[in-house]
Nucleic acid binder design. Sequence first.
DNA 1: CCTAGCATGTAAGCCGTTACATGATTGG
DNA 2: CCAATCATGTAACGGCTTACATGCTAGG
Lengths: 179, 179
Amino acid sequence: MSLKYVILTLINQAPSTGYEINKSFEKKIGYFWHASHQQVYQELAKLKKTEMLTCEHAPQTDKPDKKVYSITVKGRDELKKWLHQPLPDKKYKDILLVRLLSADLLPIDTLCEQIKETAEFEQRRLGEFLHIQKNCYSDEQKKHLSDLDKRLFINMKKGILLAEAEITWAKEALETLQS
Amino acid sequence: MSLKYVILTLINQAPSTGYEINKSFEKKIGYFWHASHQQVYQELAKLKKTEMLTCEHAPQTDKPDKKVYSITVKGRDELKKWLHQPLPDKKYKDILLVRLLSADLLPIDTLCEQIKETAEFEQRRLGEFLHIQKNCYSDEQKKHLSDLDKRLFINMKKGILLAEAEITWAKEALETLQS
DNA sequence: CCTAGCATGTAAGCCGTTACATGATTGG
DNA sequence: CCAATCATGTAACGGCTTACATGCTAGG
């Protein structure tokens, strides 16, 4: 339901190719939105058919040709309407917490291994976030950020806070389980 | 892919009806797994057909009849296998963070309203969690919890930590946006 | 030579949502 | 009398995943 609007958001920032949008999902915004490349191409086709986007074929000589998508007035209006709608409920899905319920089938050691792996993953993510924040924003810069930069900065902040919460939880969980 | 195993987990704890499982999703475990009642009934039918569950019809006089599902050996084996598999990647989907990117289409005041509403929602959730933790676990009790109780306790802890992270983020975001 | 990056998709099938559907009992 | 609780579903549709599919160029 929402992927449509995520793509419109990205193309509203600047005309893009499917490939570029997929790169964004892998690198830039992957920590707050997930989509596979197949899904992106399918959704782009749909958005073109419903006239939310226009498509321009851009031949290249040294690389494969690409298709550059731009947002239409209709697309921007739809996006704007969506932005003003109330947020839908979050649909939580945490497999590790589900597994925690199966005390009789999953030995504590195995469970602890899974918690540790999750913690290590979150620790790496956190490291990357902090690295970007340190390199992209000096203390001086933080004082006069543009409107868009401010929003990117607080986005990153959420990634950091959630990763930290995961790590804190993992530590406490391991302590409790092993006591 | 995982709902199947969530349901097996619940029925492995005790034989249940579809109605009871739905209640669990609404109340007990809703903060770490979401499913609609239609989805549950469909999944139960599938699990019965693949012989992961057996079903017993239980007539009642004062209330509608019910169907009590129990896990089979095959079901428990499948569940056990799943529990030992590596955790799949988390698929993040945070609509509020997506909306934050549309600086040109969503005025700051409207955005702040949405952040405040999210914060209030998380604050209520947090209140409920803390209430349960206070009422169900005294300091004395915490010292000798059963294996299953320990796991329930650390589950709740994650709900608390994540809600707190959301609230902290919302405060910082509002400050940054309004400065 | 082989890998990574560039660049695009189709098809089948399962997962999940939305809409529709019924009907009894209990408590305010 | 009305709302909530108990209790179960079906059908249509759209979202998402998994598997399959192609082909060129640059760099180590």
